[in-house]
Design a protein around this nucleic acid. Structure first.
Lengths: 348, 348
DNA sequence: GTGAAAGCGCTAACAC
DNA sequence: GTGTTAGCGCTTTCAC
């Protein structure tokens, strides 16, 4: 259908065809003027922009998207919005995406396997240019790979050596190893690990690092050294309360600051003091970690850097889908505050 | 360009035209089969789906969006991702949207006036079907109205009586009034309000409710009764520390649980006890509010209900843009925990 | 500096 | 139950 026919059809909505008709220019020229194309004369541009205002022209992103074959959006899947570390990461991802003129869809599996699967599948039907995925359940690897076969995907976290995708991850195993060594160096020996244990296999790096350090120190580290906190503050509070009524650890290494808040409450309820009676070290360095019962000593994860790398790597992938995949490893960094005490000269 | 011509042009990408050609059916039939249209015979549907798999057909959401004139997305603008009350609200909005098969863009102004303005403007160019906006700066009302002139918008919060938009809001003035009355009923009189004061005029409802209750009780309530905490935990800590070194309030009504965490730290640093030396009551009932130094007595805002109403009202508006606007008011509800003490029989 | 025309890939009204 | 055809509203070669 040619230009003239298009005009007749215009009903209500002001489009570039309407503007073309009333200005006397062609739709192509109108399009160029509206997009500040260099080639268009200043006079023409101004005239057309003037008319656009007058006739309340609204550009159609839908039409543009189809025409140019991209949308300027990226979709993100993270584990849970309850843990502030992920909201912080979300915020930074939004921020860096914005700098590159991308907008972002945010999604959270809320640690539900089926929900994660469903979101991954729905991503295939979404008009995003690329994806950032933090997979919680390795059982959903197939959905992830099938998405990655269609669209650029960057993984946040570490999955498998045999998953050939770009990823950006923090070495939490090493972090836990260092944290445990630190507790050992402060004279602790009766150390326990507290975290969500049973629901997924993509998340036990911290526990592994803890075990490694304990073994190296020649200390026993059996099942009893692990407290299953569940995945939220409240379950962490309840489960650790139950545990601490029967056991008396000298120190705890805790999966995250978020979970640590639940554990600290259990500790205080038992009239134990932190760090005098129990020392704790956790992970993340969330904003709250300095504002709970006791300022937390914690293994900070570099949020800003992760967001930046995720966005940059993804955009590179979008612009060059055939680039070879790479893994970028980041380190956790210890922030010492007041939740660990020195036991060296007091016995254990 | 007719069907046959389209086929010749297909390069690489499998489209419904490719599928039409190799199946012998028309593109329309292919489209129907792929969308599980009732009219298509089972045999045809299966054959086409089989071919789609075989030729790795990927649907183009972009083309579909343009054709049907909608995208199934809604965009959301909230004040800040740092305060968990907004991440909680975000999560619930995502959840309800998902139930209705919508996906959501999340954005946060981070309490920056220019950033809020920019986001509002960018929303006009985004292919979302509707918007949920919590405006922080009334100075950006024009941008908001201009967006609302183009697309369905629901406001979260209360702006003006003369802004003719649908809105869902919590009556924080009434909430603050009740909270103050509660403190008064517990025998407190030396009550101060702590919150972010100076940066915006859309957020002083709580302060107003506090003032009203104080006046009604015949108590003085001047500028000195207000502590400007700034907008984050850290500034709240620093500012309230400075304030509390010179003043000795008996009770504090605090803008949010989030801010309260900063204030509590200042209080503990001054070796004051909560609630024995200072009682506090705040707003929101975030997940953390039960897990800080002291379990917070707080005015809960109904997050789930807000999200549900926002989504439902927005979808109604999308389906019927000419519906008349309405305001839905919700109430804050007091959750009594341990941060307020009874002073009645001890003097002030 | 501007115009003509093709094309992005899908949907939907109408016809048979 | 299936095909024809005309859009959706923009961008972008290729001419002139």
């Amino acid at each position: 259908m040619v230009f003239e026919d298009k005009i007749k059809k215009m009903n209500g909505q002001t489009t570039i065809y309407t503007l073309a008709e009333i200005s006397g220019y062609s739709p192509a020229t109108v399009s160029r003027a509206l997009n500040d194309d260099k080639l268009i004369s200043k006079k023409t541009r101004e005239k057309i922009n003037e008319l656009a205002r007058k006739y309340k022209y609204k550009k159609s992103p839908l039409a543009r998207n189809l025409s140019v074959g991209r949308t300027g959006t990226i979709a993100v899947l993270l584990p849970t919005i309850s843990n502030p570390i992920y909201t912080h990461l979300s915020a930074k991802i939004i921020e860096y995406a914005q700098k590159k003129n991308y907008t972002v869809f945010l999604n959270y599996s809320e640690l539900d396997k089926e929900r994660e699967k469903k979101i991954l599948r729905s991503f295939a039907d979404i008009s995003a240019d690329g994806f950032i995925i933090a997979l919680t359940f390795s059982e959903n690897k197939d959905e992830l790979l099938s998405l990655a076969a269609q669209k650029p995907v960057i993984i946040r976290g570490f999955i498998d050596d045999d998953v050939p995708l770009d990823c950006v991850y923090v070495d939490f195993e090493q972090g836990a190893y260092e944290a445990t060594k630190y507790l050992l160096s402060m004279g602790h020996a009766k150390i326990f690990y507290a975290g969500p244990l049973s629901y997924s296999d993509t998340r036990h790096e911290r526990a592994a690092g803890f075990e490694k350090a304990m073994h190296e120190a020649g200390l026993a580290c059996s099942e009893e050294n692990f407290i299953n906190t569940g995945t939220n503050i409240d379950s962490a509070y309840r489960n650790s309360l139950k545990f601490l009524q029967k056991n008396k650890p000298g120190a705890l290494i805790i999966h995250s600051d978020y979970i640590a808040f639940g554990v600290m409450r259990a500790i205080s309820e038992l009239k134990l003091r932190i760090p005098e009676d129990i020392s704790i070290i956790s992970f993340d360095n969330i904003e709250f970690s300095n504002y709970g019962m006791v300022p937390l000593t914690t293994m900070a994860q570099p949020v800003d850097e992760q967001a930046k790398l995720l966005i940059n790597t993804l955009l590179a992938k979008i612009n060059n889908p055939d680039s070879i995949s790479e893994s970028i490893k980041l380190d956790a960094k210890m922030i010492i505050r007041s939740s660990v005490c020195d036991r060296k000269d007091k016995g254990i």
